[in-house]
């Protein structure tokens, strides 16, 4: 069952005195119940903006977001949007979702109250994320980054979300703890039948936990597919470049290929295919017309 549908979404950032930034420029994506979708792409491509729009934190300029059959409208327009009660977000910095002044247990209890859950104790949730029960009586600052992020996940889960969104939820963690916490998020989401949209710049972690992967470039989803298939046979030249830049642990001492150039300024995107200035196989048509189809938005993969 499809839980979340993002359809041709456009989100713009306006800063006085600066050109309009179209951070999400017509992106489409779905997440089903019990499914993990990994959203990857280089810094600044619009991943966070998309995630925030799904949570009602950024208004859509056009396009639609539907969650559980209800349209998502920005927060504050009509008090709390009904559709949003089922969505919980975990951020890169656990302090963004935890209050440093309140005890961990009390914050988890807030989530339980949202869900109308009167039987689960905060300590039960701590246990589920692999932390000792007695942490409930302590404050966030008493914990390491990894422990804080587990607490933020426990808090998010307490509200019994049907959709969990993690925006780089592991990147502030000690590198060797990242895969562990990512697996934990996957297991907990899938166990409870929730969907998980997992945003990360770490492709190897996404490969580990995502059922499907969506590759974003400059505000657009350029390729979507089952993780194993995309890995075995990446089709969009950008996906190829991304995967090609991952060094293989084969002991051969081969330096990974560099993708030349930076992500262009979204305030002034290239004409035609947005990837054409960096694409090694760009053709004439690429400079003039934008490939707006899926699942691979590239003129080399136009559906018949």
């Amino acid at each position: 069952m499809t839980l979340l549908t993002v359809d041709d979404l456009v989100v713009e950032h306006r800063t006085p005195g600066r050109p309009l930034v179209r951070a999400v420029a017509g992106a489409s994506l779905t997440v089903a119940a019990g499914e993990v979708v990994g959203l990857v792409g280089e810094s600044g491509c619009g991943k966070s903006t998309l995630a925030r729009a799904v949570c009602g934190l950024n208004p859509a300029a056009s396009g639609t977001i539907t969650f559980d059959g209800h349209p998502v409208t920005p927060l504050g327009l009509r008090r709390r949007n009904r559709a949003l009660a089922g969505i919980q977000m975990v951020f890169q910095d656990p302090y963004a979702s935890l209050n440093p002044r309140r005890r961990v247990g009390a914050q988890i209890a807030d989530g339980l109250r949202t869900a109308g859950d009167t039987v689960t104790a905060p300590a039960d949730l701590l246990e589920r994320v692999g932390l000792p029960r007695d942490f409930a009586g302590r404050h966030p600052h008493e914990f390491s980054g990894g422990q804080r992020q587990r607490i933020a996940i426990a808090r998010a889960l307490a509200a019994r979300p049907t959709m969990l969104i993690g925006d780089e939820p592991i990147s502030a963690l000690d590198a060797s703890a990242q895969a562990q916490v990512a697996r934990l998020m996957r297991d907990l989401a899938v166990e409870s039948g929730a969907g998980l949209l997992f945003i990360s710049h770490d492709l190897s972690v996404v490969r580990l936990i995502a059922d499907r992967i969506a590759v974003m470039y400059l505000g657009k989803i350029v390729e979507v597919g089952r993780t194993a298939e995309v890995w075995a046979d990446p089709r969009h030249p950008y996906t190829r470049a991304l995967l090609g830049a991952i060094p293989a642990p084969d002991g051969a001492g081969v330096l990974p290929a560099e993708l030349s150039g930076d992500v262009p300024d979204p305030a002034d995107p290239p004409s035609g295919c947005r990837f054409h200035p960096r694409c090694p196989v760009a053709m004439d048509v690429c400079r003039e017309r934008e490939p707006t189809f899926g699942p691979v938005a590239c003129w080399l993969h136009e559906p018949a």
């Binding site: 280089e42 810094s43 990147s171 590198a175 710049h201 492709l203 470049a241 991304l242 830049a245 991952i246 060094p247 330096l255 990974p256 290929a257 560099e258 993708l259």
Partner: peptide, 17 residues
Amino acid sequence: DEPTTALDVTVQAGVLR
């Protein structure tokens, strides 16, 4: 110490080189 962990793979490639 983990000099490229916070970076995109495309950027990591450049920093490793």
